[in-house]
Design a protein around this nucleic acid. Structure first.
Length: 276
DNA sequence: CATAGAACCTGCTAGC
DNA sequence: TGCTAGCAGGTTCTAT
């Protein structure tokens, strides 16, 4: 479910809830969630203390003492929340981290797409999926010349390119549709056809939109909640996602839903003209 | 290499 | 009411 603003909101909640806690025991209930040997995973984490929690793109980085980091991706439906150890487990809880103070961090994931793995903190950069990530959109690494360069050799639809985490990290299906509407760019436009001016506008809209969404605690349209099990508020600020058949807030034309790169894609056929 | 499509999972909803 | 097809904030593997 989560894109950058939701993952960042989860991260901030987890910092408040579990930073500095020490793990007593880890139970992996559904082994496929863990990359590598689940027993080894559990063993490695025993007696480790959570020193900080970071984020890169849509990845959460739990940094433990002794140079160990748990890299965790929530994919579509992954959630973390904290419960007292005496509370019964939820149906879709697949990994349980028990702390020395009687609380538990529980990883819950209806569709079981999420993944977590342990790596040495100092070798995180070599993890293939992290190494390939594009720049953080809300950092000064996300500069126009590089963005222009990345789009220049891509013939596929700009919507598909925005979902490609090697171009820029953190956008997903909702925010991709939103930033294209804000930039008045048709989702099917081949990326290489965009002008530098359009790419400049797009970059600025990505920054503005993600910043606003983080501030609002993310978007809840389905099942997303943060680590406090609270919904986000940015769903009230969406302009096209999920609004097919409703009037465009700029021109009044009906918002249309099509399929691009296997994903539901929403846009205004009047404001967002396709360039062939 | 770049791109398109299937695969990984479960639950919910619309339609018959 | 009951069943089925289709869809869901993502990524990765396979085939072309």
């Amino acid at each position: 479910m989560p894109e950058l603003p939701e993952v960042e909101t989860v991260r901030r909640g987890l910092v408040k809830l579990i930073k500095n806690k020490t793990i007593k025991q880890v139970k992996v209930i559904y082994p496929k969630i863990v990359v590598g040997d689940p027993l080894e995973f559990a063993q490695q984490l025993q007696n480790k203390k959570i020193e900080s929690i970071g984020r890169r793109g849509k990845f959460l980085l739990f940094n433990f003492n002794q140079g160990v980091t748990m890299v965790s991706h929530l994919r579509m439906e992954g959630k973390y929340f904290v419960k007292s150890a005496d509370k019964p487990l939820e149906k879709h809880t697949h990994v349980v981290f028990s702390f020395t103070d009687g609380l538990q961090l529980r990883y819950n994931d209806v569709r079981k797409f999420g993944r977590m793995q342990l790596v040495k903190t100092n070798s995180i950069a070599q993890l293939p999926n992290l190494a390939k990530l594009g720049p953080e959109p809300l950092s000064d690494q996300f500069v126009l010349p590089d963005f222009v360069q990345k789009l220049a050799n891509k013939k596929k639809a700009i919507k598909a390119v925005l979902l490609d985490q090697t171009v820029v990290a953190g956008l997903g299906n909702i925010y991709a549709d939103e930033v294209l509407w804000l930039s008045k760019i048709h989702p099917l436009t081949p990326a290489a056809k965009l002008s530098v001016k359009q790419i400049s506008v797009l970059r600025q809209q990505i920054i503005t939109e993600l910043t606003a969404a983080v501030k609002a605690g993310g978007t809840t349209v389905r099942s997303y909640t943060d680590a406090f099990e609270h919904s986000g508020n940015f769903q009230f600020d969406l302009h096209v996602y999920g609004r097919q058949g409703q009037p465009c807030q700029r021109c009044g034309s009906q918002i249309v839903k099509i399929r691009v790169a296997q994903r539901g894609t929403h846009f205004c056929p009047n404001c967002q003209q396709v360039i062939k």
